[in-house]
């Protein structure tokens, strides 16, 4: 399937990537080529197969058994959690105003 620039723009918006026009052109061509390769999966008979989401020690249908008890534990001190933020006020992460 050929990916056009319009599709690239739509997917870039979903992924919150603001691409340059040159990147849009390049990705349209490269994604078309990679998706062309991926097309081979349609030749596999998967009619009798359940999807496998991960190959862990626990069977996927028992994955709920992996959930831990919902109890509070010690987390990072606020100061440490905020330390790497580009903009913060000692209490919160700051972002541009979203409601006028």
């Amino acid at each position: 399937m050929a990916i056009d620039v319009k599709t690239v723009r739509h997917v870039a918006h979903l992924a919150r990537l603001e691409l340059s026009p040159a990147e849009e052109e390049q990705f349209a061509a490269q994604l078309t080529s990679v998706l062309g390769y991926i097309e081979q999966l349609s030749s596999v008979d998967v009619s009798q197969v359940e999807p496998l989401s991960f190959a862990g020690d626990v069977e996927p249908h028992q994955a709920h058994a992996l959930l831990r008890e919902d109890k509070p534990v010690q987390s990072l001190p606020r100061e440490d959690a905020l330390a790497a933020a580009p903009q913060q006020d000692g209490q919160s992460f700051l972002v541009p105003r979203i409601i006028e």
């Binding site: 997917v11 992924a15 919150r16 990537l17 390049q26 990705f27 490269q30 994604l31 541009p96």
Partner: peptide, 27 residues
């Protein structure tokens, strides 16, 4: 805006292969 902040930070911060894979996975 916040939307611009996300889009531009990610465009400036990620390299070409990372963007390519994010695009493919999102698609």
């Amino acid at each position: 805006s916040l939307g611009e902040l996300y889009g531009r930070s990610r465009d400036q911060g990620f390299g070409a292969e990372v963007k390519r894979r994010i695009m493919l996975g999102t698609y």
